[in-house]
């Protein structure tokens, strides 16, 4: 592990120094989602048009008459980032072909939270990916509807307490496991699907660049730590992102033309999920038996993924 760590420490200086998402945004202290967004924007550069769904990143960035965006940006509604992004892509293509705008390659990029991706936005996302638009869709997944006050989404993990899946006496938080949307995107035969986490910035940046280079649809699911919604300390944001990967709860991988590949070194033995859970208030109600159940679910999902990594051939 030490070589990997050293490598990661010294490369930050190779990153684009320009910021495309300005300071002065209203994200909470220690927000992992806005950090993910900041790094994504650095990796994308300035030849993009952003279509953003309603959500945390929209609300904290664009209170008229101010904007934190240094690149062209549009927000229309909650569930339609995929559709707006596909309209932008079609228009850029047609106008460039017809010589009405500069002959410059510009990528259409859609960005949504987990609600705007895995729940209310799933249909528009599915349509955009299926139609093969030349665009990237980023899901910034903070595992609940944080913007409206921490209500559960289908990306909320098993047993987590939210305001609509509270840790009650009869029902202990979220009743089901996280919906696996990267898998749904793989099933769309999208040429590039990846998971990423801002605690691994170089991995994240590489994936964003790869997704941008794909000629066609690409999907990147970015784990976004949320101290406010998870009831965790703001300074532990990055640590939580590392733990979620080291415990195997949110594995970092990419699927290129159907071929699965783990992008971070796979430990021989995963860290126990408890290391991750105990730092967060949303899992405070879990007893040893509950943690065992979470561990069993994580183990099962991990085995499923490992089978795919071992067996799936590229198309």
């Amino acid at each position: 592990m030490s070589t990997v760590q050293n490598f990661e420490i010294y490369v930050p200086k190779l990153l684009d120094k320009r910021e495309f998402f300005s300071a002065g945004h209203r994200a909470c202290q220690g927000c992992g989602e806005v950090l993910a967004l900041r790094l994504i924007m650095k990796a994308l550069g300035d030849d993009v048009v952003i279509s953003n769904a309603t959500g945390c990143m929209e609300i904290i960035s664009s209170a008229y008459p101010q904007t934190a965006w240094e690149v062209p940006y549009i927000h229309v509604a909650f569930e339609n980032a995929g559709a707006v992004g596909s309209g932008v892509e079609a228009a850029l293509k047609a106008l460039r072909r017809k010589g009405r705008i500069a002959d410059r390659y510009v990528k259409s990029v859609a960005i949504a939270g987990d609600g705007g991706t895995v729940d209310i936005g799933l249909q528009a996302l599915s349509g955009a990916m299926e139609r093969g638009h030349d665009m990237v869709f980023f899901c910034l997944d903070n595992e609940a509807y944080m913007n409206t006050g921490i209500q559960r989404s289908s990306a909320t993990p098993f047993m987590a307490a939210t305001t609509t899946s509270p840790a009650g006496k009869a029902i202990k938080g979220q009743r089901t496991g996280k919906k696996n949307v990267p898998e749904i995107m793989v099933a769309h035969n999208v040429p590039y699907v990846a998971t990423a986490c801002p605690s691994y910035p170089i991995d994240l940046v590489n994936k964003v660049k790869k997704a941008k280079e794909v000629k066609g649809p690409a999907y990147v699911h970015v784990f976004s730590m949320c101290p406010t919604g998870w009831r965790s300390a703001s300074e532990q944001t990055i640590k939580l992102g590392r733990l979620v990967v080291e415990t195997g709860i949110f594995p970092l991988y990419e699927v290129e033309n159907g071929k699965y590949r783990m992008t971070m070194e796979i430990p021989k033995k995963l860290r126990p999920v408890e290391d991750y859970l105990k730092l967060q208030g949303r899992f405070r109600h879990l007893n040893a038996d509950d943690i065992e159940k979470v561990q069993a679910l994580v183990n099962k999902e991990w085995r499923k993924l490992m089978n795919k990594v071992a067996c799936m051939k590229p198309w």
Partner: peptide, 26 residues
């Protein structure tokens, strides 16, 4: 005619795609 025809998956997306395309100047 030289145009993009987006075969949207719903009317919600057709008007949303139109919004995106119109905002892009089309």
């Amino acid at each position: 005619i030289d145009a993009e025809f987006i075969t949207v998956e719903s009317e919600h997306s057709s008007i949303s795609a139109c919004a995106g395309a119109s905002a892009t100047g089309a």
